[in-house]
Nucleic acid binder design. Sequence first.
RNA 1: GCGGACGUGGCGAAAUGGCAGACGCAGCAGACUUAAAAUCUGCUCCUCGAAUGAGGGUGAGGGUUCGAGUCCCUCCGUCCGCACCA
Length: 853
Amino acid sequence: MSRYNFRESEAKWQQRWRERQSFAARHDPARPKYYVLEMFPYPSGKLHVGHVRNYTMGDLVARYHRARGYNVLHPMGWDAFGLPAENAAIAGGIHPAIWTAENIATMRAQLERMGFAYDWAREIATCHPEYYRHEQKMFLDFLAKGLAYRKESWVNWDPVDHTVLANEQVIEGRGWRTGALVEKRLLAQWNLRITKYSDELLDALKSLDRWPERVRLMQEHWIGRSEGARVTWALDGRQDSIEVFTTRPDTLFGASFLALSPHHKLAEALAKDDAALAEFIAECDRTGTSEEAIETAEKRGYRTGIDAVHPLDQARRVPVYVANFVLMEYGTGAIFGCPAHDQRDLDFARKYELPIVPVVLPPKENPQSFAVGDTAYVDDGTIFNSSFLDGLSVADAKRAVGERLETLGVGERTIAYRLRDWGVSRQRYWGCPIPVIHCPDCGIVPVPEDDLPVELPMDVDFAMAGNPLDRHPTWKHVACPYCNSPSTRETDTFDTFFESSWYFLRFCSARAPIAFERDAAQYWMPVDQYIGGVEHAVLHLLYSRFFMRALKECGYLDLDEPFGGLFTQGMVCHQTYQNEAGDWLFPEEVTSGADGGLSDETGHPVIAGRLEKMSKSKKNVVGLDTIVDTYGADTARLYLLSDSPPERDLEWTDTGIEGIWRYVNRLWRLISEPAVALPPAGTAVSGSLSPALAAIRRATHKTIAAVTDDIDKFRFNRAVARIRELSNALEGLTEDATEAGAVLREGLETVTRLLGPMMPHLAEEMWQELGHGEMLGDVPWPVADADLARDEQVTIAVQVNGKLRATLDLPRDAAAREVEEAALALPQITRLLDGKAPRKVVVVPNRIVSVVA
RNA sequence: GCGGACGUGGCGAAAUGGCAGACGCAGCAGACUUAAAAUCUGCUCCUCGAAUGAGGGUGAGGGUUCGAGUCCCUCCGUCCGCACCA
């Protein structure tokens, strides 16, 4: 019995693809294009099966479209800047550039072993100056257009590492690496004006009909458009005023206080002469920004002693507080509190004993008796206690009050967004240098284009905390390009999301001396199918959408959306194991005893934990190399496609991959040791077929249609099941008729061609074994013959009162009357009807007869 | 709190409103073998029954329909995203 020799076969076909440059994409406007892209990896060390699931799907899509006649672009690259390289440098004394290059080499070799159909000539790594020089140019263009600007912003500051931390790097108020309490600091940061496109980014979501609804919703929430009003409150006895933003201007007459953010200009000004207020603000800053901190933080306020004048009733005064729950980043950094109709305001009012005036009367409530208890009333109702608004609905009152505010010049209807501009400065070495120079005389000066790229120096020292660029003896010291005064370079680098916001454009002309050739981008873009994890639903995918618009504004291209189709695949999970001490164990350290109990290598009991996403820290990882060594790339690929729907999480099990390996060998035997002699390649099926052979031929053509449809709809697990169904049927073909060989050949060739995009090496080997000279990768996708796929006989279910009672085999498309008669004549049915005529009979052609007795 | 998704055998899962459980994993029985592995064959939702078969079954309850896993309402549970957003 022969076994499929994947080692020989996979190496052979990979070599063949390389020699023939089978997957090199050529710009050819005469042909329809298809751009498939998987989110490019961070070169962290080694590929894990989670990566490989993603790339296997992309490869299937790429090879499938190639077979369908598209000019396919399917590139791969490396998102190569980032913290882990720097941490490796700090921990192990290896330079980030070397660490990254070594990891890329390892991971590229792993990808090549998987046989993915990438155009390797277009490979990019974002840490190369030939890549990042172009984004330095983009930044200068953004600067010229006002799309980039410098602003003081509040950041998470790690006092030990001397660096800014992203929100995700702050865990329970402490730096994830140092464990130091994170401070809020005001730092001058470069920002990109993404908010300029808030409305456009929101509106265009509607056009992204090949994106998951979930991702579009997440972006919609992230942009967070809300309509409301700005209202100006004069301050009693002062010249200045406070502007608040509200979505509920209809409740203005229920106001009982104003609250300022601790970072509000007025709050800071007052703190200069008020030590207690200064201390209150300082305390607010010490509170972390993490979810836990926010949730547990008590709502606290500081009474300033200032009163504000109600804009619609000069006689009314409300106290002004500084409150810890008011965000400077949203709206105007100041709110008015209406306790009766906002839960948070209600809690605050109860605590500080402020008046609670209801102004929205719920339906069926009495204006005299209605009172707010512990719960604010936030729904619709009739306005009361509100002067000229009395009697209006909430919606009408919003309109009326908006008009009045505008007439009086004390406010206007406006729109607020949750989206904030994107802060791109990072106090890190391993990133793209921000190409500006600080001149004591000229101020901030862009690096002249001729001086690009600003390259990272290689001779850096990681021995001390903080950004090595800052401490470098010479790098930052330059002459001002305009006045020649001694100046300093910007030592911050870009957020690494900068690189991933345009890499898909670089792939269109990866070796161009400019960022990308306009023609190439206009031809290949947008990406037709983008595939990656849902964890990028907002940041990367939103930044990329912004970049397209910003680049368009700077004249780079004329397109808005980068990704026409998006698919977010599930994660690969694995059982976790812990010993009694609570230490995590690798799966290979665990053995299961005869009684089903688990133990470690020392014989101590092991507790099986929950299924979790594979991660190094929980040790529930499966090494890709081991899998490929043992079973080959194709087996791993088919397992990743077959076991779960692609959008759902997949559990990696040893028995699962074993099963696929058995299937691979069954397929190989089916081809290499056919039960019936096969006629030569190219022999068509002819002559009259026995019913059994006709059924197999029908199954063959049905399978083509079904698998094609399944792949189009990303139902890969079902496509695999269909192919297995067909190959199972072919295994059962042992009939020794003249036509049998030709029918078997047609079936085997179909299985081979359908498997081509999934298990490309095995399929090539099978295709060759079937006697074909050309490569399967060059053979067009099979087309189902609708006539051959059609059933001549159909099985029709017969229901009585909704219960299945019998089935009926009839010729296809039999007349409804005949079907009904045949059904009613069945003994099981006559028995149930007991001689009575049915009250009603529904006949669905070729499917069912439903009898109501 | 807001928003979303999901709930089907021992497990992963199928099922344009039309025969629930395709395809696979695990399991059981058998064949081959001195034996094991590999391979092959058969069985495997539950209850009753020797069997043809009968009844029940898609988180719970209700509704629409000739017909509901699928559509609608209420509830329960799980997972995910966002969250002091005014």
